Simulated scan of single mutants.
Amino acid sequence: MLGPVAAHGTFRADSPLFSSLHLDDGPLTGYDLERLRRAPHRLVLSSCDSGQMAPVGADELLGLATALLHQGTAGIVASVVPVNDETAVPVMAGLHDGLTLPEALCQARGDDVSFIAIGAG
Results as ranks from 00 to 15, higher is better:
1 M>D: 11
3 G>T: 12
3 G>M: 13
3 G>V: 11
7 A>K: 03
7 A>H: 06
7 A>F: 08
8 H>M: 04
9 G>F: 03
11 F>H: 06
12 R>E: 15
14 D>M: 09
14 D>G: 10
14 D>A: 15
15 S>E: 11
15 S>H: 07
16 P>R: 00
16 P>C: 09
18 F>A: 12
19 S>L: 05
24 D>V: 11
26 G>Q: 02
30 G>Y: 08
32 D>E: 08
32 D>C: 09
34 E>Q: 08
34 E>F: 06
37 R>L: 12
40 P>T: 04
41 H>G: 07
41 H>C: 04
44 V>H: 05
46 S>K: 03
46 S>W: 04
47 S>Y: 00
48 C>M: 09
48 C>Y: 01
48 C>G: 09
49 D>T: 08
49 D>N: 15
53 M>I: 08
54 A>Y: 02
54 A>R: 05
57 G>T: 00
60 E>D: 13
61 L>C: 12
62 L>G: 01
62 L>K: 01
62 L>P: 01
63 G>I: 01
65 A>E: 05
65 A>V: 13
67 A>K: 00
68 L>P: 00
68 L>Y: 02
72 G>R: 08
73 T>H: 00
73 T>D: 00
75 G>I: 10
75 G>L: 12
75 G>Y: 02
75 G>Q: 02
77 V>A: 05
82 P>H: 15
82 P>E: 15
83 V>I: 10
84 N>S: 14
84 N>D: 12
84 N>C: 11
85 D>Q: 07
86 E>T: 10
87 T>C: 08
87 T>S: 13
90 P>E: 01
90 P>D: 07
91 V>A: 05
94 G>Y: 02
94 G>I: 00
95 L>R: 09
96 H>C: 07
96 H>M: 14
97 D>R: 15
98 G>L: 09
99 L>Y: 06
100 T>Y: 11
101 L>I: 02
101 L>V: 02
102 P>W: 08
103 E>W: 03
104 A>N: 09
104 A>S: 13
104 A>V: 08
104 A>K: 08
106 C>L: 13
106 C>A: 14
108 A>C: 01
111 D>A: 14
111 D>K: 10
111 D>R: 13
112 D>C: 13
112 D>S: 11
113 V>I: 07
113 V>L: 06
114 S>E: 03
114 S>K: 04
114 S>G: 14
114 S>A: 15
115 F>T: 03
116 I>K: 00
117 A>H: 13
119 G>M: 11
120 A>S: 13
120 A>L: 12
120 A>R: 14
121 G>F: 04
